[in-house]
Amino acid sequence: MSDETPPPLTDAPARKALGQHFLFDPSILKRAATAAGPVAGRTVIEVGPGPGGLTRAILNEKPALLIAVETDPRFSDALMGWPEAQDGRLKVIAKDARKVHWEKVLAESGAELPALIIANLPYNVGTPLLIDWLKAGSWRGSMALMFQKEVAERICAKPDTDAYGRLAVLAQAVTRPHIAFTLPPGAFRPPPKVDSAVIVLEPLPETERFAHLDLLEQIAGAAFGQRRKMLRAALKPFAKKRGMKAEAWLEDCGIDPTARAETLTQAEFRRLALSLA
């Protein structure tokens, strides 16, 4: 811990409605703060700082600016009293992270880009936030995010595995995700019912990133929405809305209509999306 103001409200109860589970172990917090690479001199975004354990760990690594977004006024008010909030190194936004206009906030803050995103995400908003960040522009750099272990595995999954699905297709279209480390329920207060994991998502080189994520999301969502069916059946409603026959569309893209979604590679999903772009 630094000799500055310690994290506030360490005894404040977590609120189930906000999906809160807090970490206080300094060694775990340091690992999470540095999992995505060096923080010194960088702009960092943190969502759901709660009582500030990870916030302090990030600040100890000397970022140029830490933007902390917290919807719970118990914690946002306390964080605004930290010395770093007074001298401009910590910017606290008391708002639901799903409603934040990230590019506007970064521009108004004079942030150095790309920004790192480091967060112990509230369980109930983690997935939608990730999808928004995957679709973000060049302002978003590497991410180190804590999820339920099952969700982390889905993000990092490869084809022909049970965990492979829409999240993996989207995440791997623009990033290279991997699980950095896992955590048992007992590491948190209160303990969740499942293991957790920190995943690091490193942006792919610009020439390898897929530009049409909205289309990719629609196709992957339709394909995995009925994952036990052959693709020609699973994608039939999607194709019909676009005046196409699913079987012919798949064949035109060089994909076996009798295959199932979990067998398709990233390249094949991209091919389907590009055919409609």
Results as ranks from 00 to 15, higher is better:
3 D>P: 07
12 A>C: 14
13 P>H: 13
20 Q>M: 11
23 L>Y: 02
24 F>Y: 06
25 D>N: 13
25 D>A: 14
27 S>P: 00
28 I>M: 06
29 L>I: 11
31 R>N: 14
33 A>V: 12
38 P>E: 14
41 G>F: 07
43 T>F: 00
46 E>W: 05
50 G>S: 05
56 R>G: 01
60 N>T: 12
62 K>R: 15
63 P>A: 01
65 L>N: 12
66 L>M: 10
67 I>N: 01
68 A>I: 02
69 V>D: 01
72 D>S: 11
73 P>Y: 03
74 R>P: 07
77 D>N: 14
77 D>T: 15
83 P>E: 13
87 D>L: 01
92 V>N: 05
98 R>Q: 13
103 E>A: 15
103 E>T: 13
105 V>K: 04
107 A>C: 00
109 S>E: 07
114 P>H: 08
117 I>H: 01
129 L>M: 12
130 L>N: 09
131 I>W: 04
133 W>I: 07
138 S>L: 10
143 M>R: 04
144 A>M: 09
144 A>T: 06
145 L>F: 11
148 Q>D: 08
150 E>T: 05
157 A>W: 03
158 K>Q: 14
160 D>G: 07
165 G>D: 04
175 T>C: 15
177 P>S: 06
179 I>P: 03
183 L>F: 06
185 P>H: 13
188 F>K: 09
195 D>K: 12
196 S>C: 10
197 A>M: 08
197 A>I: 09
201 L>V: 08
202 E>Q: 13
203 P>K: 09
206 E>A: 15
207 T>K: 14
211 A>Y: 00
213 L>C: 11
216 L>H: 02
216 L>A: 08
219 I>W: 09
227 R>F: 03
227 R>E: 02
232 R>L: 10
233 A>S: 15
240 K>L: 13
242 R>Y: 07
243 G>S: 07
244 M>H: 10
244 M>C: 02
248 A>K: 15
252 D>R: 14
256 D>P: 09
259 A>T: 12
260 R>L: 06
260 R>N: 02
260 R>S: 09
262 E>H: 15
263 T>I: 06
263 T>V: 12
263 T>E: 13
270 R>K: 14
272 L>A: 06
275 S>R: 15
276 L>D: 02
